[in-house]
């Protein structure tokens, strides 16, 4: 297994590029569904202490909505799509074709719409990932939670925590032109997956 501390700059670049293509694909899918221009930033590929991960989405007690998918295949991992509650409700409005601000509470229909959005985002991300690495992976059915960011990220971090004290996260921020649909997309490869991915892109 490749030690995560030892990724070369070229390998980090390759990881960033994977994130870029994956998230670009996802952003396009999302903007088509809600019929809005959606931008994304250059993905951050970082190795950070596990306990600092919740800070990426506003701190451990920030109220967020998250869609979680487990990724199966040769390089297993987790995908999390995390949004502040307000933005998640805007996304529900966008998905259901309602005026922004309509959704005030998440009913079963809204929850289902968000899960489906997570599904589409993950699918398009992994699809791009496959074209780049030829590693074929499948997402699980999506699960949804509305809760404190720290509590939600626990799910992912516990698995990493078993292997070490650091997390490799590939994170992309989405930003809609009118600021309505902002969120964070995380791909968190399982510790053993990193070497598989790096090998597949063939960068020394």
């Amino acid at each position: 297994m490749i030690d995560e501390f030892d990724l070369t700059p070229a390998q980090l670049d390759a990881m960033r590029e994977i994130g870029n293509i994956g998230a670009g694909n996802s952003a396009t899918a999302l903007s088509q569904i809600v019929n809005k221009k959606i931008d994304m930033n250059v993905p951050q590929v970082s190795l950070i202490p596990i306990e600092d991960v919740p800070d990426l989405v506003g701190g451990p007690d920030a109220l967020v909505v998250a869609v979680f998918l487990r990724v199966y295949g040769k390089a297993p991992g987790n995908i999390l799509f995390v949004m502040p509650k307000k933005n998640a409700f805007y996304l529900v409005d966008g998905l259901m074709g309602k005026p922004l601000g309509t959704t005030q509470e998440l009913d079963e229909m809204g929850a289902s719409a968000l899960k489906e959005a997570g599904n589409i985002l993950a699918g398009s991300y992994l699809n791009a990932f496959f074209h780049f690495t030829k590693i074929s992976m499948l997402p699980s059915i999506p699960a949804l939670a509305i809760d404190m960011a720290g509590a939600i990220l626990n799910v992912v971090l516990v698995q990493l925590g078993q292997m070490g004290d650091y997390a490799m996260v590939i994170e992309t921020k989405f930003l809609a032109e009118d600021d309505s649909i902002n969120g964070h997309f995380f791909l968190v490869p399982d510790p053993g997956s990193l070497s598989t991915i790096v090998k597949a892109v063939g960068v020394e």
Binding site: I50, E51, P54, G59, P60, D61, A62, D147, M148, A149, G150, A151, I152, L153, N154, V155, L157, G161, D165
Partner: peptide, 19 residues
């Protein structure tokens, strides 16, 4: 997360966002 603190009155120890 993955940390602990000890102390005495009148301090309050708090930990956010446990899952």
């Amino acid at each position: 997360m993955a940390d602990y603190k000890v102390g005495r009155s009148p301090s309050t120890l708090i930990s956010y966002g446990l899952g």
